[in-house]
Write a protein that binds this DNA or RNA. Structure first.
Lengths: 151, 151
DNA sequence: TCGACAGTTTACGTGAACGTAAGCTTCATG
DNA sequence: CATGAAGCTTACGTTCACGTAAACTGTCGA
């Protein structure tokens, strides 16, 4: 054993792909269309490296995509929430404490979250409706089966 | 006003498209790939006519597709449940009363319903999980906003 | 330093799910 | 029975979301 598998602690594109259950191509594609906010400018040709936070972001993106069934384009506007949170974190980390600025950032994040929630709630209620319908049908079929075999 | 809009009571493809919110092309495509169980053989060239039951079936197909996010191919196996129910209805209507036959048909329908339910339940729980996560985040953002403006 | 595995860019290919156009035909209505 | 809106078939076009191949590095452990 002596291959260039793991750098040290850094995550490369293949590692991330395995972690979130996708392919390197998909990650590059998502980056290409701007789904993964500009991560530290990188020398063209050099390897992409990812932080744990970026992996989490990607997971969230794929989760939203899978559960909401939206196009990657619609998703772009949806994940602006994450961008807003990132900016927020960065500024707080950097010591910015202007309450007006913070208020604006928080309000923006709140708006994005509400957008996401509206979508999710509607979908969830539709899905729960479907589930109820199916369960009702199932019950009826079961009743008819029981009626066939009284014992 | 004097156009060949509505036949009499029969539904044509354009009517159905409007009713379920899709296009005639899509309906023809679904028929082509076998998503809409063979409806009464039709002379090539003559207009397609649909019963209310077929409209309902199409609605269900699109509902499953939209909410489960499955491919049309996967959907084909999923909607076999509807086919089973259709066969059941037809046979009962035709006076078949062989209990073994009925039992077999009902059991088949039950199996298909359970398949659908398994999918739906998993999705529903994932979506509810997502909703909970988003609501938690929303709560935290709100807390921070309140902390900014004590009054 | 070197070897090779994993990564990079570029570009063309692909499958799914329809859109669209052309030319012709039904069919309810006046 | 004439007419025209809507439908039919056939076939090629299109968009999205990646897959895949080629030719070339970057990078880490030995």
């Amino acid at each position: 054993m002596s291959t260039a598998v793991a750098p040290d602690g850094a995550l490369r594109i293949g590692d991330v792909a395995r972690l979130v259950g996708t392919t390197a191509r998909t990650i590059r594609y998502y980056e290409e269309i701007g789904l993964l906010g500009e991560h530290a400018t990188r020398q063209s040709g050099s390897h992409r490296v990812y932080s744990e936070a970026e992996v989490e972001h990607l997971r969230e993106v794929m989760r939203l995509r899978s559960l909401l069934g939206v196009s990657l384009d619609e998703l772009k506007t949806l994940v602006e929430a994450e961008e807003a949170r990132k900016v927020l974190r960065a500024e707080v980390q950097a010591g910015v404490e202007d309450p007006l600025r913070l208020h604006s950032l928080l309000t923006e994040a709140l708006g994005h979250l509400d957008d996401q929630l509206a979508l999710v709630r509607r979908r969830a209620s539709e899905l729960n409706g479907l589930q109820a319908d199916l369960e009702e049908r199932r019950g009826k079929v079961e009743d008819r089966l029981r009626a066939l075999q009284p014992r």
